[in-house]
């Protein structure tokens, strides 16, 4: 950012500063979720927490894996796995945009010296049955954050809605450190010696090896089998949960069974399916005709889990929200193919 600054903040300092900023504003600092996800949105701290009426504030770094985006570590701007700093504010405070701008200050960006714009960019994830309205935040022509007001998740209308701030950490760091390649980002600088560890030192092998695996070596047949096993187990869990629901009014035992039912484990299985699908896709193993169908299978799991979770939380039964009038209206507005 500032060519005259010889020691700009390191990658890890950037993360620390952002985390401190949001912790000071009441967010729970969660740790990265330990299953492969394509985006911070898919971690249960977002996907499940935004459902139902309970207010929640959380921030966490989420490594996000997108097998098809891998470039063997050869492209200076593209990664198989990048880091997002994800913030969920449920419900969004009235000054959520101002808070966000303050967080840029916390990273050392003086807005008086820069050009900031909020440009329309709505977000949609067909796999999660989720979508929202928002912007990409542009700093001096660079997209640094995706800012989304969630409207629907797991096929359910949200009430209250949540604001999701997704900081693209590599882009921001490359910008702050004024480097042209992500791999040149200074990840850490040893106090005293000033010894530098770069992003490339930490992650290059990752990028190369996983590109090789995802594009060349992942065993298609076995990956499909993994997918089917995870899907099957997730489905079985959802069916068992549905049976529980049928016995709804027959005493405390059922309430206890409901509470201890492993909806969270079902969601882990759904996440695995999603990641396995991404590997198969990167591997070129999913034909065009199959693609839509497989996405629909994963979505069916996500939607079932969302409903089960809401029910388990003891809030309104999902269908009551789902069938309200405005819900129908924007379902069509959200999912219809739109020529923008």
């Amino acid at each position: 950012m500032n060519p005259s600054n010889p020691n700009p903040q390191t990658f890890q300092e950037l993360i620390l500063r952002l985390q401190t900023f949001w912790a000071e504003r009441g967010c729970v600092l969660q740790q990265p979720y330990d299953i492969e996800v394509g985006a911070g949105t898919m971690a249960p701290e977002t996907f499940l927490r935004v459902l139902g009426p309970k207010p929640y504030k959380v921030a966490y770094v989420q490594p996000s894996r997108r097998p098809a985006d891998g470039r063997y570590g050869e492209n200076p701007n593209r990664l198989f796995k990048h880091l997002q700093l994800q913030v969920i504010l449920k419900p969004p405070p009235e000054n959520v945009q101002e808070l966000y701008l303050e967080s840029l200050g916390a990273m050392g960006i003086d807005l008086r010296q820069h050009d900031i714009k909020f440009e329309e960019d709505n977000w949609e994830s067909p796999t999660l049955g989720a979508w929202g309205i928002g912007w990409q935040v542009m700093l001096d022509g660079q997209e640094i954050t995706q800012f989304t007001y969630f409207q629907q998740c797991g096929g359910l209308d949200l009430n209250p809605i949540s604001a999701e701030l997704t900081y693209g950490l590599e882009r921001i760091a490359a910008f702050l450190q004024d480097v042209d390649s992500i791999y040149d980002i200074v990840w850490a600088r040893e106090p005293g010696t000033g010894k530098v560890t770069t992003y490339g030192d930490v992650r290059l092998a990752d990028e190369l090896q996983f590109s090789v695996y995802n594009f060349e070596m992942a065993d298609v047949e076995k990956t499909w089998k993994h997918f089917e096993l995870c899907e099957q187990e997730c489905k079985t869990l959802l069916e068992k949960h549905a049976e529980l629901r049928k016995q709804k009014n027959s005493g405390d035992g059922v309430a206890r069974d409901q509470k201890r039912f492993p909806v969270l484990a079902a969601y882990d299985l759904c996440l695995k399916c999603s990641h396995l699908f991404n590997i198969l896709d990167a591997r070129g193993a999913i034909s065009v005709t199959e693609r839509v169908g497989v996405i629909a299978r994963v979505r069916a799991l996500a939607v079932g889990i969302a409903k089960a979770w809401v029910e388990q939380q003891g809030s309104e039964p999902a269908s009551a929200i789902d069938e309200s009038e405005p819900a129908k209206k924007h379902k069509s507005a959200g999912l219809a193919p739109v020529a923008l």
Partner: peptide, 13 residues
Amino acid sequence: GLIRHGNERVLRA
């Protein structure tokens, strides 16, 4: 000149 520098960087990429 920070804004110009930032925009040039993005365009170069």
